[in-house]
Amino acid sequence: MNIFRRSRSLTISIILLSIIVFLGFTAGVLTDKEPLRTGYAVGLTAPSSQFPMGTDQLGRDIFSWTLYGIRTALFVSTISTGLTVIISILIGLPAGYFGGKLDQLLMRVTDFFLSIPRFILIIFAVIIFGPTLTNIILILSAFSWPTIARIVRAEVLSIKEREYVQAAKVLGAGNLDIMFNEILPNVMPPVLVAAALQMSDAILAEAGLSFLGLGDPNTASWGRILAIARQAIYVGGWWTLLFPSLFITATVLSVNLLADGLNDIFNPKSVR
């Protein structure tokens, strides 16, 4: 495959991601234990054949929790990133294309969002609206679009001057047609790279929220295991820290490599 030969990052990230996704999907087969149920063991238990990653103080199985955590992390990050990209395009595309007052207005709003500390705002919003999975997804997207919207706008500014856009105007094509059919496909490459980076951001943000106790209490999240590890680590429960951390690192790393790989493919000149 040509694409994989052109980018080693992409190859590694696809392999890593497929393993992670596979583990997430087959969690129900790989373990018969439920992720959040207490009392599988009495107290903190070290990894054994019965509990491959040990249990926490309440006897919850870390292995099952970590595997189901993959689902939460990927679900939250993909949906919120998707929403983020859609919002960014809806704001960046008209701003760049029409320019003038509309551009000024939209970009000032963008600047406002960029100038406030994002994670603190997200925490407040989750406290106000309540820590459900839907809320977390919506809040993450609502505060993440400005960076990508700026990328979209900058790309549109350069692409709208290309002669094929002029040619479409001369043919009599309407503004919506030009924006979505002629310009948007050419804006997508850098946006996809940014989206992949946004996805790793979202994974970390969700874990961070859960760590602070602001995750959805009904879903298995890596951040919550780490919160438990905060105490468990003092009584020798290293496994509560090690395994979820490993998964967070591997997932974030592979998503970042994906961004790298996409960049390699879209800008072949930067290869080597």
């Binding site: 290309r162 002669e163 002029q166 040619a167 002629e182 496909p185 050419n186």
Partner: peptide, 15 residues
């Protein structure tokens, strides 16, 4: 009224 532009590299949409 139709037009042909100067730069044949940018007057066709690459996608």
């Amino acid at each position: 009224v139709q037009a042909v532009f100067q730069d044949p590299f940018s007057s066709l949409n690459p996608r």
